[in-house]
């Protein structure tokens, strides 16, 4: 049996918001360590890897591994019904047909209970070994979201170029070009505002802007985002959770 209670429903709301536009159906795999999701978008360009660690929950128990096949659009309709500050509890039996979603306000004078039908979903699990990256950038997630939205208005591709001194986000479209250059700096008072650039080798990669626009829907999960890049390889975009992470692996574009 699974019983997971969040101190606030806001974490789950943000997680669903962050992934529902990339994938529609996915398995939530529940183990004693927490909840994981691995899913690939329909165009098979973006891979999502989510870990909601046991410590993200106020109370958590999962005696046996349980898979919840969830339609995120339906789940989102239910999850939006809770107030962000409500307790959120997910309950499922072993081999469940549905999952119970319970919201309680903190005064306990209102309890809302929903049941979501589960689906039997096929899913290929991809083995993601520890990848070697040539460059790692950590920056404020909101700044990365703005850069993405701004440059996406010019082109459907977004280029990321990392040199020793800086990182350049660049787009080249029909009516013009644009780029944003960031240098590394340390903000002692607000560490989350810092920009950290670690580069072993220079990087020049191009990605589909629409996929990065989907990735930045994770912005509300974390003050900062870490971007890891390697030549001719998928990029990793990571938003840290209180215990766990939301990672997006994005396949690059190549010269034909």
């Amino acid at each position: 049996m699974l019983e997971g209670k969040f101190e606030e429903s806001s974490l789950m709301k943000k997680v669903v918001d962050a992934i529902k536009d990339s994938v529609k159906l996915c398995n939530f795999n529940c183990t004693e360590h927490g909840v994981t999701v691995q899913a690939v978008d329909d165009s098979r360009v973006l891979l999502i890897s989510l870990l909601i660690g046991e410590a993200s929950f106020e109370e958590y128990r999962c005696d046996r591994n349980i898979t919840l096949g969830i339609d995120l659009e339906s789940f989102n309709k239910i999850i939006k019904n809770g107030n962000s500050s409500d307790f959120l509890t997910l309950i499922a039996e072993d081999s469940p047909d549905n999952v119970l979603i319970i919201f309680e306000d903190k005064k306990k004078d209102r309890v809302s209970e929903y049941s979501l039908k589960l689906m039997d979903l096929d899913s290929d699990f991809l083995q993601i070994d520890d990848m070697e990256f040539d460059a790692t950038i950590t920056m404020p997630s909101s700044e990365f979201a703005k850069i993405t939205r701004d440059l996406k208005t010019l082109s459907e591709s977004l280029q990321i170029i990392v040199t020793k001194e800086n990182v350049k986000f660049s787009s080249d479209g029909d009516f013009g070009t644009g780029n944003v250059v960031l240098k590394g700096f340390v903000d002692m008072d607000k560490p989350d505002e810092s920009i950290k650039i670690d580069m072993a080798r220079p990087i020049n990669l191009t990605f589909g802007a629409k996929y990065i626009a989907d990735i930045v829907k994770g912005t509300s999960l974390s003050e900062s985002v870490t971007i890891k890049l390697a030549d001719k390889s998928p990029a990793l975009f990571e938003y840290k959770l209180p215990s766990g992470f939301l990672r997006f692996y994005l396949a690059p574009k190549f010269d034909e």
Partner: peptide, 14 residues
Amino acid sequence: NLKQSNITNFFAKS
């Protein structure tokens, strides 16, 4: 012209 690669080509099925 740039071609979009496929994420599943980079990771092995397990």
